[in-house]
Design a protein around this nucleic acid. Structure first.
Length: 816
RNA sequence: GCGGAUGUGGUGAAAUUGGUAUACACGCCAGACUUAGGAUCUGGUGCCGCAAGGUGUGGAGGUUCAAGUCCUCUCAUCCGCACCA
């Protein structure tokens, strides 16, 4: 009974393929489970993070299939994106060829790991069929006003030569290549995600319990809702005249209306329209202009290093006191938050304080601690009592916010306002390997949508990818077309879509029956049946980007009438990273472990088992070579020991009372493992403890030799372990149980009934002895037995309290 | 700075409601088999101690008959966001 992973694994992989074992049924009366892992980018080879991701989802999928559920466990590839183009530039390959070659290779790796994906539903988002429906949705969204084009200040990555969404800027750098981004004024398409800001925020409540808290918080912070007061600051006559009466006022937003009387200057973003006007009309000295220009071109990280500013030598009037307040330009004021202008209260804001100190601006305190005086050594940012604040003097600063907003509203000089950090999602990219945006620029008609019957607008294959400029724009003929509205010569849009658009609806596409793939994206009936995703598994790195966009698309699709629910993913499991030597596996660190090598040396089952056993799925996983060998050893033992099993078609009936102590114990351990397995697959997801339970049961089986107990044990254990080490379990099951045991198992209660119980006896909480008592022993007897067992501890002491915790322990409290 | 986590043997980690801390595995030690072992099997293994015993879940307090678990304070590490007005 030699265990040969290679032979067994090949055999069953072929069997599953031939028998189409993992295709979901189209019988929509059955109970369903939709198990989904975040689909991979076809980078070329699987890494251990992938193996972990799909080992988890495969365990869920196989378990629920055993339970008789109709399981959808699909796989696809998020196949558009920059790396394909970068590879093209580097190797002279074509992005398409590179991508599809990689997909073929990675599929082989997936099936060599025994993952139970639906093969019929495999797809890639760069497939023209996928592009076709995506473009159709884009047109729907444009018609609904949810997609628009405008000129704006954008995040530009000088290395990748493309625009990035705010979500793709990480610490001021490109999320892919780490190049500091710069702001650039360009035309760009936007999704109106801000229209859904409130709903995206409020619906996070619906996800509580199903999603990790951390992800919910990250999304909440990203949306960044804050309530406050917005009002206009009016220029005095002199300043207004200086601005040629072009501007009378500008708008500011504050979350601290209670500090209104402390305003001592105001600051505009360098990109603010008033600043731009003053520069363009030479209303500022040259050195001031050059300082502002410098601020504008500084990357956002450098801009954070030190506060700087210049005075514009104009003034506004305080809305309540009418006093004159100087207007500055400051580098810390962001054009894309609020209105790009702030009122500054140095006495009660750290940032305003620093700036005021640096430029020697006045500091007016208006809030003091309840029990003392305010000091001007630093900003006082806590709640306190208002003073120097006119009719609001004496109020609690926190509570006064309501009164002050009310005053502004009643006097029509400002209003309560909500602001969001969330910005509209900029989706156009100046790159080749993406879905073309289906619009046409016509001299007469302007921006025109393509007709749906002309979709897909496919990419031309004969392109030169040089890394300079946009290949679609450089292509000699592709962009020339006829206007869909008037028929005249027109120019096709050469921007392509952000790849996050594809991943925002792929989970819906998987619901579609492949036989209808040509004619529809998905049907209402299919969506209704399969959605929402019961278990969604992926990395935490998508906490904001993909998971926010997918939620947004779901809500848009609902409003377009395609789906009838609000949230796509019922339960989200964010797996931890795979580490080696304490660091994330990466090529640059040279600490990667190649899945193919592990499969070749130990087999797929060993790789899967180690990954699920070494740590709970949400935690980081430290790769450990001897740990892998340990898992391999277990599988070998599990396989070899199956020689003790008798062939049977159904689970043996066993007379429990007639068994020896060891046999009873083995049965108990087996059924304990079953109870734990059900709990793990349904509630806890801690596969490591489930596997430990199976190991304990194996150890217990090993010290007895009743073949019925062996058979029953294996009937159950190979069923529990099938989601983890499927090849080995199918081999054992087909050999002894005709594959009948790979199904839901029933827990028998009698194996848990014990003749006697072992209780710990503790004195003042410290365990001193063990006693065996009958199941129905009276407390009185238990206490007297307990006292006997710890006699020597009781000499010269008085027992002041006796506690019996049923089935656990006895605690004697003594004194003296 | 704000937010979220995590601290348990030499290592990865268990302990579902406060109730016998360290399950399971790795490693290590000893033994068996063996020409050999980086194979397999058996036994041992928190720390101090010959032992009796003491001590032990980052640290300091507290509640309780009983605390890894609850409360207060504190330290460390990791992750996310960050001049957001």
């Amino acid at each position: 009974m030699e265990y040969s992973a290679q032979t067994i694994e090949k055999k069953w992989q072929e069997y599953w393929k031939q028998n189409k074992s993992f295709e979901p049924s189209e019988d929509f009366t059955k109970e369903k489970k939709y198990i989904l892992s975040m689909f991979p980018f076809p980078s070329g080879r699987l890494h251990m993070g992938h193996v972990r991701n799909y080992s988890i989802s495969d365990a869920f999928a196989r378990y629920h299939r055993q339970q008789g559920k109709n399981v959808l466990h699909p796989i696809g590839f998020d196949s558009f994106g920059m790396p394909a183009e970068n590879a093209a530039i580097k190797n002279g390959s074509h992005p398409k060829g590179w991508t599809y070659d990689n997909i073929d290779y990675m599929k082989k790796e997936f099936y060599a790991l025994g993952f139970s994906f639906s093969r019929e539903r495999e797809m890639a988002t760069s497939d023209e069929l996928y592009t076709k429906f995506e473009q159709s949705f884009i047109i729907d969204m444009f018609e609904k006003g949810l997609l628009y084009r405008k000129k704006g200040l954008l995040n530009w990555c000088p290395h990748d030569q493309t625009v990035l969404a705010n979500e793709q800027v990480v610490e001021g750098c490109c999320w892919r290549c780490d190049t500091p981004i710069v702001k650039k004024d360009m035309n760009q398409y936007y999704f109106k995600i801000t229209q859904y800001g409130d709903e995206l925020l409020n619906d996070l409540k619906k996800l509580e319990g199903g999603w990790p808290k951390q992800v919910l918080t990250m999304q909440e912070n990203w949306i960044g809702k804050s309530n406050g007061l917005a009002f206009d600051l009016f220029f005095d006559e002199e300043s207004s005249a200086k601005l040629n009466n072009t501007f009378k006022s500008f708008d500011v937003f504050t979350t601290r209306p209670d500090t209104i009387y402390g305003v001592s200057y105001t600051a505009l973003a360098p990109e603010h329209e008033i600043v731009t006007y003053m520069i363009e009309n030479s209303l500022l000295p040259d050195d001031v202009i050059s300082q502002i220009k410098k601020m504008k071109t500084t990357s956002s990280i450098d801009r954070q290093k030190e506060k700087s500013g210049v005075p514009l030598k104009i003034e506004v009037l305080h809305p309540l006191t009418g006093k004159k307040i100087p207007v500055w330009v400051a580098n810390f004021v962001l054009m894309d938050y609020g209105s790009g202008a702030v009122m500054a209260v140095p006495a009660h804001d750290d940032r305003d304080f620093d700036f005021a100190k640096k430029y020697d601006l006045p500091i007016h305190a208006v809030i003091k601690p309840f029990d003392g005086e305010v000091s001007l050594d630093s900003a006082f940012t806590e709640v306190g009592e208002l003073f120097n604040s006119g009719e609001f003097d004496g109020l609690n600063s926190k509570k006064s916010q309501y009164n002050i907003i009310k005053y502004f509203e009643e006097n029509n000089i400002g209003k309560k306002t909500t602001n969001y950090k969330l910005k509209d999602w900029g989706v156009s990219r100046q790159r080749y390997w993406g879905a073309p945006i289906p619009f046409v620029h016509c001299d007469d008609c302007g921006l025109v949508m393509e007709k749906k019957e002309n979709l897909p607008i496919a990419l031309p294959e004969d392109v030169e990818i040089t890394g300079e400029g946009n290949p679609l724009d450089n292509h000699p003929t592709w962009k020339h077309c006829k206007c869909p509205a008037c028929g005249k010569d027109a120019i096709r849009e050469t921007d392509t879509m952000d790849t996050f658009v594809e991943s925002s609806w792929y989970f819906l596409r998987f619901c579609a029956s492949p036989k209808n793939w040509e004619k529809e994206a998905f049907s209402q009936e299919q969506i209704k049946y399969w959605m929402g995703v019961d278990h969604y598994i992926g990395g935490i790195e998508h906490a904001i980007l993909h998971l926010l966009y997918a939620r947004f698309f779901t809500k848009v699709f609902r409003d377009l009438g395609y789906v009838d629910f609000d949230e796509p993913f019922d339960k989200l499991l964010t797996q931890g990273m795979v580490l080696k030597d304490g660091a994330k596996m990466s090529k640059s660190k040279g600490n990667t472990v190649d899945p193919d090598a592990i499969i070749e040396k130990f087999g797929a089952d060993t790789a899967r088992m180690f990954i699920l056993f070494a740590a709970p799925p949400t935690q980081e996983l430290e790769w450990n070579d001897s740990g892998v060998e340990g898992s391999h050893r277990f599988i070998k033992r599990f396989f070899t020991n199956s020689g003790n099993v008798l062939k049977t078609d159904k689970i043996p009936k066993i007379d429990h009372a007639s068994l020896s102590k060891e046999e009873k114990f083995a049965r108990k351990k087996v059924y304990e493992a079953l109870v734990r397995a059900n709990d793990v697959y349904n509630e806890r997801y801690t596969f490591n403890t489930m596997i430990a339970g199976v190991m304990e049961a194996m150890n217990a089986l090993n010290v007895q030799n009743n073949s019925d107990v062996w058979s029953e044990g294996y009937w159950i254990l190979s069923s529990i372990m099938e989601p983890v080490i499927p090849h080995t379990c199918w081999e054992i099951s087909s050999k002894y149980f005709s594959l009948n045991n790979l199904s839901s198992q029933t827990v028998i209660d009698e194996v848990f009934v014990e003749d006697s119980i072992s209780l710990g006896v503790s004195i003042n909480g410290k365990v001193r002895a063990q006693i065996e008592v009958a199941l129905d022993e009276t407390n009185e007897n238990i206490i007297s037995m307990a006292k006997q067992s710890v006699e020597k501890w009781l000499e010269d002491k008085t027992i002041i309290k006796e506690i019996v915790v049923p089935k656990k322990l006895v605690n004697l409290v003594i004194k003296g």
